[in-house]
Structure formats: C-alpha cells, structure tokens
C-alpha cells in the first residue's frame, strides 16, 4: 500500500516539477535542498495531492510535504484517519 502511494506521490512531484528525475529523488532529503522547491512548488504539490488523492492538506501541515518519506507517512496517516472517521 505504501509502495503504491509512494509511486503516486512521485508521479505528482514530477508533474509539479517536470525537470525532476523521479529515479533520483532522495527520500529523506528536503525537496528545497534537492531541487530548489519554493513556495509555489509546495502550493502546486498540495493542489495536485488534493486533486489526485482527495486529501486536503491544510496549510499549517505544508511542512509535512517537505520530503518524500515525510510526505508519504503524512498522507498514509491522513488516509487512515479519513477511512476510520468515515466508517464511524
């Protein structure tokens, strides 16, 4: 499950920043350090996540989108939280 989420996040990442090579993304290094991610990239990334995964990341949680592993862990938690809240 995490594996497929990671590949979907990577696809969204390269959609936002087409010049990024998905195969070379280091999972634990900040996107800003790896490929000059700026606030507009984070904005586009949050919009893409909302559109493709249906997860509305609030602005105060944008720092959770700062690296691949952090982002995947956060979205995994958000997905579980949503599933459990919708089943109750």
């Amino acid at each position: 499950m995490t594996g497929s989420l990671e590949s979907r996040v990577l696809a969204l990442l390269t959609e936002v920043a087409p010049d990024v090579d998905a195969a070379l993304v280091l999972p634990d290094v900040d996107f800003r350090e790896q490929f000059d991610f700026d606030s507009m990239d984070v904005y586009n990334f949050a919009v893409a996540i909302h559109r493709a995964l249906g997860i509305d990341v609030p602005e105060r949680d944008y720092r959770e989108l700062s690296s691949l592993s952090r982002c995947v862990a956060y979205l995994e938690r958000a997905r579980i939280a949503r599933t459990s809240s919708s089943s109750t």
Binding site: S39, M40, Y43, A46, V47, I49, H50, R51, D56, V57, P58, E59, R60
Partner: peptide, 17 residues
Amino acid sequence: LGAYNAHRPPLERLLPA
C-alpha cells in the same frame, strides 16, 4: 492570510507573494 486560507481548498489559497 492564515484565516483566508484556513477554510479554502488548496487551489483557492493565496501565497504571501
């Protein structure tokens, strides 16, 4: 800005810029 963005979906939020 925080209050403006808090109840809007990502697409409609504003950047400080």
